[in-house]
Write a protein that binds this DNA or RNA. Structure first.
Lengths: 151, 151
DNA sequence: TATAAATAGTTGCACATGCAAATACAACGC
DNA sequence: GCGTTGTATTTGCATGTGCAACTATTTATA
């Protein structure tokens, strides 16, 4: 087995590790958010993305990219959240194909309530994961990403 | 904003990055595997896990953990693969609740055909990702995980 | 031995997702 | 101006998933 094959095997192993950590985190966030505020992880992701726009709206497509969803899934996700009065659709005048979404007051309030739950769950699952030798390097890398742009 | 808040923000940002990279890789593997051998990523994961047992069987539960799926999803996934004659269920004599699964010759053959496709797609998507500054540290970490146990 | 508790796997059901087709609008070329 | 092409979003449909309830078997307890 040459060094080229080794590289392939290392990548495959790394991908399995990444997937494992991703699954672990997502499952824990899912559990915590569902139990406390009745949100799924994707739903939280949308509220988070919108709130990070701070009062400004987002188009469906941006939302789709932020949530890593298809266009159709995004449509229905937004519909769900709209039915719960957490956000509103806003037809935009300058490009009448486009649709903006914006958090309602209730949406912002629920997000504020969800965020500490989310953050604590994330911290919990990451400290757990850091103790598993095969996951630890991935956890370290997660902490070492470039900081978010200033708010 | 204190250093504690910063840590929270760094974790959140790291998690978004991890999720983004995960989504990127999964989408590309999905595309490549579906197009060439008609397998989904989870299906490939199962064949891979079974083949890595090299001739030995795996219980449903181990498979569920390896694929990060629920027990019920695993049942149906195994059923799908069994219907395509890629693996077989084997009732085990010593614990008659348990069910082992094993690759068939066709399953092993398809896996051998899928593996280079998978590995090339993984390499491709990782080199692409390595060029995006916000993803690069994560990609490096993926390459730095502990090597798999010798085969 | 009999009965209860735990474990492995499967099924009913509701639901979120992706793909492809449809709709509505914008932008470009003539 | 008018048709063509491209883009944004939505809907029909098929499918994969998780949860909870169920069956079969093992293990523990009295």
């Amino acid at each position: 087995m040459g060094i080229a094959d080794d590289a392939v095997e290392v990548r495959a192993q790394g991908w399995r590790t990444l997937a494992a950590l991703h699954g672990l985190i997502e499952a824990e966030l899912e559990r915590a958010l569902a139990a406390s505020v009745g949100l799924s992880v994707v739903e939280y992701t949308v509220l988070d993305a919108l709130s990070r726009q701070d009062g400004w709206h987002m188009r469906m497509q941006q939302l789709a990219r932020a949530a890593a969803l298809s266009a159709s899934a995004t449509t229905r996700l937004v519909t769900r959240l709209e039915e719960r009065a957490l956000l509103t659709r806003i037809l935009c005048a300058d490009d009448r194909r486009g649709i903006y979404t914006e958090l309602t007051a209730a949406g912002r309030a629920l997000y504020e309530r969800a965020r500490p739950i989310h953050d604590e769950a994330l911290e919990r699952v990451l400290s757990d994961a850091a103790e598993q030798p095969e996951l630890a390097p991935m956890v370290d890398a997660l902490h070492a990403v470039a900081p978010a742009p200033a708010r």
